[in-house]
Amino acid sequence: MEQATVKWFNAEKGFGFIERENGDDVFVHFSAIQGDGFKSLDEGQAVTFDVEEGQRGPQAANVQKA
């Protein structure tokens, strides 16, 4: 698992990007966020996640709020 920071997340559209420590951004979809209830992330929030290869490149999976 990697630890990184949420760059931005649009709760209405259900997706955003996580900024990795190496500077690369990773796409995150609300369905990858672990937990119950409304799944959203806040800008600047610390998260841990795995990286999977998606249809359009790397994307976050198993996202957990740190």
Results as ranks from 00 to 15, higher is better:
residue 1 M to G: 13
residue 2 E to A: 10
residue 2 E to I: 14
residue 3 Q to Y: 15
residue 3 Q to I: 14
residue 3 Q to S: 12
residue 3 Q to M: 13
residue 3 Q to T: 14
residue 4 A to R: 00
residue 4 A to C: 06
residue 5 T to Q: 08
residue 5 T to I: 13
residue 6 V to Y: 01
residue 7 K to G: 04
residue 7 K to P: 03
residue 8 W to N: 03
residue 8 W to T: 02
residue 9 F to K: 00
residue 10 N to W: 09
residue 10 N to P: 03
residue 11 A to N: 11
residue 12 E to Y: 12
residue 13 K to V: 09
residue 14 G to M: 00
residue 14 G to V: 04
residue 14 G to K: 01
residue 15 F to D: 03
residue 16 G to M: 02
residue 17 F to G: 00
residue 19 E to N: 11
residue 19 E to I: 14
residue 19 E to D: 07
residue 20 R to N: 06
residue 20 R to C: 08
residue 20 R to G: 05
residue 20 R to A: 05
residue 21 E to S: 12
residue 21 E to L: 12
residue 21 E to R: 09
residue 21 E to F: 10
residue 22 N to E: 10
residue 22 N to S: 11
residue 23 G to Y: 07
residue 24 D to I: 12
residue 24 D to Y: 09
residue 25 D to W: 12
residue 25 D to Y: 12
residue 26 V to Q: 01
residue 26 V to P: 02
residue 26 V to A: 02
residue 28 V to A: 00
residue 29 H to T: 00
residue 29 H to S: 01
residue 30 F to C: 08
residue 30 F to N: 04
residue 30 F to A: 07
residue 30 F to P: 02
residue 30 F to Q: 07
residue 31 S to W: 05
residue 33 I to Q: 02
residue 33 I to W: 01
residue 33 I to L: 07
residue 34 Q to P: 05
residue 34 Q to K: 12
residue 35 G to T: 09
residue 35 G to H: 09
residue 38 F to W: 14
residue 39 K to T: 06
residue 39 K to Y: 05
residue 39 K to W: 06
residue 40 S to P: 04
residue 40 S to V: 11
residue 40 S to Y: 14
residue 40 S to H: 10
residue 40 S to N: 07
residue 41 L to A: 01
residue 42 D to F: 15
residue 42 D to G: 10
residue 43 E to V: 15
residue 43 E to K: 15
residue 43 E to C: 13
residue 43 E to L: 12
residue 45 Q to N: 07
residue 45 Q to T: 09
residue 46 A to M: 14
residue 46 A to W: 15
residue 47 V to R: 00
residue 47 V to M: 01
residue 47 V to D: 01
residue 48 T to P: 02
residue 48 T to N: 07
residue 48 T to D: 06
residue 48 T to V: 11
residue 49 F to Q: 00
residue 50 D to Y: 15
residue 51 V to M: 11
residue 51 V to K: 03
residue 51 V to T: 08
residue 53 E to C: 14
residue 53 E to W: 15
residue 54 G to N: 06
residue 54 G to K: 07
residue 55 Q to I: 14
residue 56 R to C: 14
residue 56 R to P: 07
residue 57 G to H: 03
residue 57 G to A: 04
residue 57 G to F: 04
residue 57 G to D: 02
residue 57 G to I: 01
residue 58 P to F: 10
residue 58 P to L: 11
residue 58 P to Y: 09
residue 59 Q to N: 05
residue 59 Q to C: 07
residue 60 A to M: 00
residue 60 A to E: 02
residue 63 V to S: 02
residue 63 V to L: 04
residue 63 V to I: 06
residue 64 Q to R: 13
residue 65 K to P: 12
residue 65 K to D: 10
residue 66 A to G: 11
residue 66 A to W: 12
